[in-house]
Measured scan of single mutants.
Amino acid sequence: MTTFKLIINGKTLKGEITIEAVDAAEKEKIFKQYANDNGIDGEWTYDDATKTFTVTE
């Protein structure tokens, strides 16, 4: 398992979430669903070196 981080830079929601997953593709799906469930629609980036997804509205 690898630890992945999501950084949220939303208009109404900001924060960080850290979760373990098998791979980045699995985690991306979970993070995007979390963002969608919380009304966050923005630009996504991924840094493989730090295993960090960022979504910015």
Rank of each mutant, 00 (worst) to 15 (best):
T56C: 13
K51P: 02
V55Q: 04
D48C: 07
N38W: 14
T56M: 06
T54D: 02
E20K: 11
T54A: 02
I30H: 05
D47C: 09
E57M: 13
A21D: 04
E57P: 09
T50Y: 02
W44Y: 03
L13C: 15
I40F: 10
T3I: 11
Q33Y: 02
N38E: 04
N38F: 13
D37W: 09
T18G: 04
K32N: 06
N38V: 11
D41L: 12
A24W: 11
F53R: 00
D37R: 05
L6F: 13
D41H: 11
N36D: 10
G39W: 08
F4C: 14
D47Y: 03
K32F: 12
K29R: 11
K5T: 13
K51H: 12
E28K: 04
A24D: 15
I30P: 00
M1S: 07
K27P: 15
I40H: 03
G42E: 01
E26D: 14
G15R: 14
A49T: 09
G15I: 15
F31A: 13
D23K: 05
I8C: 15
K11L: 14
K32L: 09
N9K: 07
E43K: 09
T18E: 06
V55C: 09
E16C: 15
D48P: 08
V55F: 12
E16R: 04
D48Y: 06
M1Q: 06
M1I: 12
Q33W: 05
I30M: 06
F4A: 01
A25G: 08
I7M: 03
K29M: 09
T2Y: 14
T3Q: 07
K27R: 14
T3A: 05
F31P: 01
A49E: 07
K29P: 03
V22R: 10
I7A: 01
T45M: 07
E20N: 10
T2D: 08
T54Y: 10
L6N: 00
Y34S: 01
D37Y: 08
G42Q: 05
I40R: 00
D48M: 03
G42S: 02
T50C: 09
E57L: 15
Y46S: 00
I17W: 13
K5P: 03
E28Y: 13
F53D: 02
I7L: 03
D48S: 06
G39M: 05
E57Q: 08
A35K: 02
Q33E: 05
I19N: 02
A35N: 03
F31L: 10
A21P: 03
A35P: 01
L13K: 05
E43I: 11
N36I: 13
I7P: 00
I17Y: 12
K27C: 15
D47A: 02
I40N: 01
G10H: 05
Y34H: 02
E43F: 09
T52E: 02
N9S: 05
A21F: 12
I17A: 02
I30L: 10
A24S: 13
T45C: 08
D41A: 09
I7H: 02
T12G: 10
G10E: 02
A25Q: 11
F4Q: 02
V55E: 04
T45D: 06
I17C: 15
F4E: 03
G10I: 14
D23P: 06
I30D: 05
N38M: 14
I17L: 09
I30G: 02
N38R: 14
T12A: 09
K29Y: 11
E28H: 11
T54E: 04
T18Q: 06
M1F: 13
D41C: 14
M1P: 08
I7F: 05
I17M: 08
D23I: 06
Y46W: 04
L13E: 13
F31S: 00
E57W: 14
T45K: 06
K29W: 13
L13S: 10
V22A: 10
F53A: 05
G39C: 12
T54N: 05
T45P: 00
D48N: 05
G15M: 15
T56D: 04
E28C: 15
I30Y: 10
I19K: 01
L6D: 03
Y34N: 00
K32D: 03
L13D: 08
A21V: 13
T2P: 05
K14C: 15
Y34K: 00
K5I: 14
A49I: 09
T56G: 05
E16L: 06
D47M: 01
K51F: 11
Y34W: 15
I8Y: 10
T3H: 05
K29V: 10
E20A: 09
A35D: 01
G39F: 08
T52G: 03
I19V: 07
K29G: 07
Q33F: 06
G15P: 05
Y34E: 02
E26S: 08
E20I: 14
K32V: 06
I40V: 07
D48I: 06
D37L: 09
T3C: 15
I17T: 03
A49F: 06
K5N: 08
W44G: 00
A25S: 10
A24E: 12
Q33I: 05
T3D: 04
A21K: 05
A24P: 13
E43C: 14
M1T: 14
G10L: 15
T3E: 06
K11V: 15
I8F: 14
V22L: 11
K29S: 11
W44T: 00
Q33P: 01
G15C: 15
K32A: 11
I7K: 03
A25Y: 10
F4L: 04
T2L: 12
N38K: 08
G10C: 15
F4H: 06
N9F: 12
T45L: 04
F53Q: 00
G39A: 10
I7W: 03
Y46E: 00
G42N: 01
V55S: 02
N38D: 01
A24R: 08
K27W: 15
Q33N: 07
E28S: 06
K29N: 12
Y46A: 01
I40Y: 06
K11T: 15
K14Y: 14
A25V: 11
Q33C: 13
K5Q: 07
D23E: 06
K29H: 09
T45S: 11
F31T: 01
T50Q: 04
T52L: 02
M1E: 07
N36A: 14
T52V: 03
W44M: 04
E28R: 06
T45N: 05
E43M: 09
I17G: 02
L6Q: 00
L13I: 13
N36C: 14
D48V: 05
E20T: 12
I19C: 15
D41S: 11
I30Q: 05
E20Q: 10
I8W: 13
E26Q: 07
A24T: 11
G42M: 05
I19A: 06
E26L: 09
M1G: 07
Y46H: 00
T2H: 09
A35Y: 04
K27T: 15
I40P: 00
M1H: 08
I17N: 00
A35S: 04
G39I: 04
M1V: 10
E28W: 15
V22G: 07
K5E: 06
Y34A: 03
W44Q: 01
E43N: 07
A49K: 07
Q33L: 06
M1N: 10
T50D: 01
G39D: 05
Y34D: 02
T12C: 15
I8V: 11
I40C: 12
T54C: 12
K11G: 13
A21M: 14
W44S: 00
G39R: 05
E26G: 12
D37E: 11
K14L: 13
I40L: 08
T56A: 05
D37A: 11
I8T: 00
K5V: 13
N9L: 11
G10K: 03
N9M: 12
K51W: 09
T2V: 13
G39S: 05
F4D: 01
T45Y: 07
E43L: 10
D41K: 12
E57G: 07
E26W: 11
T56L: 08
Q33S: 04
T3K: 08
I40G: 01
E20H: 11
T45F: 08
A49G: 05
E20R: 11
L6Y: 07
T12V: 12
A25K: 07
D37I: 08
E43D: 09
E28D: 10
N36K: 14
L6S: 00
Q33M: 08
A25P: 10
K5D: 09
W44L: 04
K14H: 14
I7D: 00
